[in-house]
């Protein structure tokens, strides 16, 4: 464990908690893409199946349980409890255009052709594009609530910190996982446009609205 990975995990946790609290407290999921949240729940489910097979550390297990719990709670709030506030008309990204290619790629490019490893690879590839429905929804509505932009900032920051963690681990441990690194670079690049808007607008107290 290194400071970049720890900060990255805490940033990821912060994003997940911010979103869950925003929806729970405001009793509304307006502006939130339910499709992205379903994809994240799928990412955690397929990646953390090793909860059943191997114990790495209390921290590892605890965080995985929290991530899975919060992501399913968020999906539950969006599609069941607060369904009336879900803005389905703007959440129209065709997720099958993500899941099918990602599924195919996971079969073709992986570290080991075993069920658990292919599911892990699928989850790594899926996570890199899971935010697209949310970014697409914001481009359609033309704006985002400030709390939603903070959610996206911490979510984008987490994988950017992981990139530094991988540089650190390569340098100090000789460890590198090309699949995670390439997917992590793609994932972080997808946030660049948002990061620019976040820094130039939201941090200056303005509302995030598109076109920029």
């Amino acid at each position: 464990m290194n400071i970049f990975r720890l900060t990255g995990d805490l940033s990821h946790l912060a994003a997940i908690i911010i979103l869950l609290l925003k929806i729970w407290k405001s009793r509304s999921c307006a502006g939130i893409s339910g499709k992205s949240q379903v994809l994240f729940a799928l990412v955690f489910t397929t990646r953390y199946l090793d909860l059943l097979t191997s114990f790495i550390s209390l921290y590892n297990t605890t965080m995985k349980v929290i991530y899975i719990g919060c992501s399913y709670a968020t999906v539950y709030l969006i599609y069941m409890k607060l369904k009336a506030t879900y803005d389905g008309n703007h959440d129209t990204f065709r997720v099958e255009f993500l899941i099918v290619p990602v599924g195919g790629l996971a079969f073709l490019v992986n570290h080991d052709f075993s069920p658990l490893e292919i599911l892990w690879t699928f989850s790594i590839y899926l996570e890199s594009v899971a935010i697209l429905p949310q970014l697409f929804m914001i481009s359609k509505t033309g704006e985002a609530e400030t709390i939603t932009t903070h959610y996206l900032f911490f979510l984008g920051l987490y994988r950017a910190l992981y990139l530094i963690n991988w540089i650190w681990r390569f340098y100090f441990e000789g460890f590198f996982d090309m699949i995670a690194i390439v997917a992590g670079v793609v994932q972080t690049i997808l946030y660049c446009d948002f990061f620019y808007l976040y820094v130039t607008k939201v941090l200056k107290g303005k509302k995030l609205s598109l076109p920029a």
Binding site: D50, I56, D112, E117, M178
Partner: peptide
């Protein structure tokens, strides 16, 4: 292919 015994990252 690089065998990763288990993935220690979240």
């Amino acid at each position: 292919s690089q065998e990763l015994l288990h993935h220690d990252e979240l």
